[in-house]
């Protein structure tokens, strides 16, 4: 039986050392997030003043914070929130970034207006725009997702548009036009599937940016409302006790680092295998 391009790609990915390392790191975080209700025994918001500032021990694997809350519970539930936000932002980007990028690249008349809006949004530094949006809408998980989607969709759309501009001129697209295929069919069967490789690479990096930016926003008090634990607000609280209780800020910090590093390695691997041309530019 012959090998489909998809299956060959997966095989090459599994042989790529950086990709596998990144995947493993990211899986640690994913597993923590998925199993949060089962691997934490203590409510992450339960206060116990008598047990405050306990360093990591057998009772509290990651120690406790200034209010005696279990840091294990808090960081694991924080991981869950980070992953949820990351997934939501990636899904919104995959849908709307592809839609805007494909329309803009494929239909010439739509290109100028859509790309000017895109440029306007991209002109703001990502973090500043996200802060602005959450500041206006108020801090909440949904608003953070919305803000991050608005910030990153233009970037995703740009990447999709660039591939579509090339693909629409491919001879197999011309052949489909000549056979009488409509725009919808051409986009669905030829253009979008072939634009997926750079999109997937972009989305893996985007996941990392989303997690990082979300942590920044909640560190600044613009993310999910306390006492809901997020890595950002745990670090914000731990910042005051950095000398006395360094584990409070270190533990979510290390997890954040593992997530971002894992996703970046994973993205590098995907890029090497799916889109070798990009490697030369990077």
């Amino acid at each position: 039986m012959s090998d489909s391009p998809a299956r060959a790609t997966i095989r090459r990915l599994l042989r790529h050392r950086l990709f596998v390392t990144g995947l493993a790191l990211f899986l640690i975080v994913l597993v923590l997030a998925a199993l949060a209700p089962w691997i934490t025994t203590v409510d992450p918001t339960k206060l116990s003043i008598r047990a405050k500032f306990k360093p990591p021990s057998m009772d509290f694997v990651f120690g406790t914070d200034n209010l005696g809350r279990s840091l294990w519970s808090r960081t694991v539930w924080g991981a869950r929130l980070s992953v949820e936000i990351g997934v939501a932002v990636v899904v919104l980007n995959a849908i709307f970034g592809t839609l805007v990028g494909a329309i803009s690249g494929y239909f010439r008349w739509a290109d100028a207006p859509l790309m000017r809006i895109n440029d306007a949004l991209m002109a703001f530094p990502a973090i500043l725009l996200a802060i602005g949006i959450t500041a206006v809408l108020g801090p909440s998980t949904e608003n953070v997702i919305l803000a991050l989607a608005v910030v990153y969709i233009p970037r995703t759309a740009r990447i999709v548009r660039a591939s579509v501009l090339v693909l629409r001129e491919m001879e197999y697209v011309q052949a489909a036009v000549a056979a009488g295929a409509g725009h919808a069919r051409i986009l669905r069967t030829h253009v979008i599937p072939n634009a997926l490789a750079p999109l997937i690479v972009q989305l893996s990096f985007l996941f990392a940016y989303a997690v990082l930016t979300e942590a920044t926003l909640s560190f600044l008090g613009l993310g999910a409302v306390p006492p809901t634990p997020t890595w950002g607000n745990i670090m914000a609280e731990g910042r005051q006790y950095m000398i006395e209780a360094p584990w409070i800020i270190t533990i979510p910090g290390v997890l954040l680092m593992i997530t971002v590093m894992g996703l970046n390695l994973l993205g590098d691997g995907l890029r090497d295998v799916l889109d070798p041309r990009l490697r030369l530019q990077a």
């Binding site: 391009p5 001879e171 011309q174 052949a175 000549a178 056979a179 009488g180 409509g182 072939n194």
Partner: peptide
């Protein structure tokens, strides 16, 4: 136009760009 295209075909020069690699 779609109906008219039925009666017409095209073969391109580049044998590598003319076929969708995913199909």
């Amino acid at each position: 136009l779609k109906q008219a295209r039925r009666a017409m075909g095209v073969v391109f020069q580049d044998p590598f760009g003319a076929l969708d690699p995913r199909m």
